[in-house]
Design a protein around this nucleic acid. Sequence first.
DNA 1: ATAGGGTTAG
Length: 844
Amino acid sequence: MICRFIAFNSSKVSRILSPFPSLLSTKSSFSVAKLDDELLSTTNITSDHKDCLYQEVLSGMKKTGFREYLHGHLFRGLVSGLKQTHVEEIMSELMDESPDLSVWFFKELRDIYGFRHSRFSTLLVSHILAGQRRFKELQAIMEQLLQEEGKSTPFVFSSFSVESSGSAYLICEVLSKSFRNWDSTNVVWDMLLFLSSRLKMVDDSLYILGKMKDLSLNVSTQAYNSILYNFRDTDKMWDVYNRIDGKNEHTYSTVVDGLCRQQKLEDAVFFLRASEWKDIGPSVVSFNSIMSTYCKLGFVDMAKSFFCTVLKCGLVPSVYTHNILINGLCLAGAIEEASGLVGCMNKHGVEPDTVTYNILAKGYHLLGKISLASEVIKQMLDKGLSPDVITYTISLCGQCQLGNIDEGLRLLNDMLSEGIELKSVIPCSVMLTGLCKTGRIEEALSLFRDMKANGLSPDLVAYSIVIHGLCRLGEFEIAVWLYDEMCSKRILPNSRTVGAMLLGLCQKGMLLEARAHLDSLISAGYRLDIILYNIVIDGYAKSGCIEEALELFRVVIKSGITPNVATFNSLIYGYCKTLNIAEARKILDAIKLYGLVPSVVSYTTLMNAYANRGDTESVDELRLEMKAKGITPTNFTYSVIIKGLCIGKKLTKYKQVLRDMISKGITPDQVTDNTIIQSLCRVKDFSRAFEMFEVMKSPTPATYNILIDGLCFHGCIEKADSFLNSLQERDVSLSKFAYTTLIKAHCVKGDPETAAKLFLQLLDRGFDVCIRDYSAVINRLCRRKLTNEAKFFFRLMLSRGVSPDLDICRVMIRSSDVFAWTIKSGLLLISSNQRNGLLSHLIC
DNA sequence: ATAGGGTTAG
């Protein structure tokens, strides 16, 4: 499209166009297309030239029809270099003619050309819109202004930028300098105040409020309410409240909500009654806040009675009111009642919504009834309601808890592909938990990276989940790295993150370091919670350092921190580990002295110690005590009981135990099955053991090991061989242990050839073969005087880059003539210390 | 303005 514009014989233009005689020759008028193509694409033209040209062109446009030029070829070329000052100038001039045209020009530049307007232009348009009472549009452009101002304010820490008071300052300057006498100025100031407060720019809003007071401008109730809202959980709430002249329903319900958040529930109820005297009366919203607080504190009955009060006051309970109560009932475990209330919502004139169903689904989830949770979600979809992020998150959580991690990953993908914006890190955190708990740490880390790449910055919880997962798997280095990264992002670790780190240290056996870290936190003045102490106490107990565990326990008591069951359970474990069951038993009684109730873990730990001794009577005694106290045994408990039967030579009773489990609704898991199979193997009942194995739905590598070990133990090596073969043919996943067990057996039996064959398979399949695996074989071969064969393995070891240790050399030396050979082929590899040790051994 | 989703020791 070609536009023509009337020529203006300005000297400026002639000067600019002097390098282009062909253009100047047209003199009175010229083609815009020509100008566009020839002039602007020429590199000769300087920015000064362009600047003059814009001014001329724009003033030319002002004189003729604007709209035409704006869409013209020329303008599109020019707009990339258009300055904010030019636009301000044009808009000011346009105002005299038509404010509407000015607004149109503003929007057109912004929406079609993506032009970023100045503070002045934006505020100019704001005033026009305010004057015309176009509040929606006013709100939209001012909100954008505030947000962009916040982003470009330079002097802030990234995480606090929203709250810095730099953004409002410049806007206020322009407002008070250029727009003081406009009719709509109060409206614009008030809108600015309201929006800054609603965007949680608290400092900015206070600055604006101060300025407005200086200028004697009116502050609307809406703006004040928003400020009040931001201060509702602090003492300053009343200061704001007292400044509000025209208090309304929102003001009162915000105060009630604030008091609830400040844990001043009685004050809230009192205030609600007091506001009843005022002409408007209480609102449902206030009741909702109070009910919600009672529910969170665990007093559903109070919430219920307030629900009745709402009805008595002649108010109508809203969907919120219902949802709050339904949620309270679910948290209290009263799922039936909750479900009933959902059913009668329509009688109260409201319909359940997505939130209602989400609450109900979560309620079932909390009770472990995950299939019913999915059922609720299905109902919701049938009703034509659409799932939201939270619905997906609840399903995701359920799938992960069922162990269906891949299904979880699929759900997360579905969510993204259906265009549901995640908005928060929570769905990813749920997925991270699932991955970490199943040891899929690599995938967790890659999801963590993806989150960052997609602009979802992990928060404290997300970091804690991954750090904890890493520590549990002993990946301490990456954990420390992430911990530092988190701190550098100004995300302060909390007790849970610290706990993860302590756990990592303990699991690596670095108890001294863990204790030092704990002590340093104590002396830095942190009040540590019991969980942190428990982690270290448990670390001591697991390593059999019962004295240290007790010492730290005494520190806990001395500090006035209340221990919990887990603390005592660790002590029980520590005593059991050091074979002091009498003391362990005393700890069980001590739990009661502290007013605590022993848990399944307390009993199971102690039962395990008795079971290892074959003391089935004591196991039974504890089992009855549990039953009397209404403590439900777990799968773990039953496995311990079965193990006890086996060691106590009373295995015949195992079917009885299985029946008992099933009657209690506990499905035997793989560990139970493995325990039974192992027990049957010990008593050489292979037919039953294999029978059990055949019916197992999903045997684990441990199952195979147990069977192979059992067969070898009773000398049935051929059977073990063919079993391993059959497993290899079925291509099931075998662990190293399956091979090494069989290899050892062949060494003992004196069949080094088969041992060697299997050993080579082990290496072939890429297992991590360590010195202990070699020494196990060499030891046994030497004992059987199979020196040549031992030499074979010794050479194999050296060829694989594994250095012999002192013990292995001793063994080789002891078996007669191999001394010289050992020295020749490998001893040089050992350290001088080891060599000295060897020499002293030889002298003896 | 009021409701719903994620982390911890045995």
